[in-house]
């Protein structure tokens, strides 16, 4: 079993314009883009949305292959959506068999729906591909900052998120190691029925949980030793600063969102 091959919100380091944007600008841009996608309503608006995405992808230097690889898990959802839309949209019938009717409107609708989901996922992946997890959580914390006024523990939430992200590879490595150690004592994780397989996991899960708790304890001690006491009055080594480019990016994203919204209202 190659647990190491699992990728989660993978980050491809780079130095493109998109990589260097402020994470907050990218987050706002993504939200604006997603809103725009749901306001898009016709050929023209979809074309604008597509061209925008294509431009950002080109500038980001992220490989198209990497982007498409992320689509695999949602393939089923895509097909499902397309089929449902195709059959259940009333309009001019094109073909008919048994109780199913395919309409012209249905095909158009299905096509738009698939394109919409594809672009939505691509844009989201683009964010995680070009932004390090650390920058992303920093950006989120900063954007959600106003919620602190209503006593939402924003700093704590973002700290939990970054610690969780940080420990995924460590735990995967640990799992690999314990699995090998138990295999060396004759443990068999691959054969047997469901109950046997579940039972076989005990020698893996017990040490894994113990080590996770131990690590959590050690990390808490290490943080306390460095006088960590939550978000109150905490300053940062790397401050987030908006640069003119970030402003421009946000402005462009909002403009496209509003533009698509207006055009969409008229059915373009």
């Amino acid at each position: 079993m190659a647990l190491k091959d699992i990728t989660l919100g993978q980050f491809f380091p780079g130095s493109s314009l998109i990589h260097r944007l402020d994470p907050r600008a990218k987050l706002i841009g993504l939200i604006a883009y997603i809103v725009a996608l749901f306001l898009a309503n016709g050929w023209l608006t979809y074309l604008i949305a597509f061209l925008t995405l294509a431009l950002v992808v080109a500038v980001s230097t992220v490989k198209l292959k990497a982007l498409l690889r992320g689509m695999k898990p949602v393939l089923f959802l895509l097909v499902f959506t397309a089929v449902l839309n195709m059959f259940y949209t009333p309009g001019t019938p094109l073909a008919k068999f048994w109780i199913f009717t395919i309409t012209y409107e249905g095909i158009v609708h299905a096509f738009f729906m698939v394109i919409r989901i594809l672009m939505l996922i691509s844009a989201t992946f683009l964010l995680t591909y070009t932004t390090s997890p650390l920058a992303l959580t920093d950006g989120l914390e900063s954007l959600l900052g106003p919620l602190k006024k209503v006593r939402v523990p924003v700093h704590e939430l973002s700290m939990i998120m970054s610690i969780a992200l940080r420990f995924i590879p460590t735990l995967i490595e640990e799992t690999d190691k314990i699995m090998s150690a138990q295999r060396a004592r004759g443990a068999d994780f691959d054969t047997g029925n469901l109950i046997q397989k579940a039972k076989a996991l005990i020698p893996l899960l017990v040490p894994l949980f113990i080590s996770a708790f131990r690590r959590a304890d050690e990390l808490a001690t290490a943080m306390e030793c460095r006088c960590y006491h939550g978000g109150e009055g905490r300053t940062r080594m790397k401050q987030l600063h908006y640069k003119p480019g970030d402003g421009l990016f946000i402005f462009a994203a909002l403009a496209i969102c509003v533009g698509i919204g207006v055009l969409g209202r008229f059915g373009w």
Partner: peptide, 24 residues
């Protein structure tokens, strides 16, 4: 015997843990 093998112990008693291999 792996490095730091004490991190793979999982049973309730020492006896049960040592017997894991022979039982398999």
């Amino acid at each position: 015997v792996f490095q730091y093998p004490e991190y793979q112990l999982f049973e309730e008693t020492v006896y049960k843990d040592i017997s894991f291999g022979p039982r398999n």
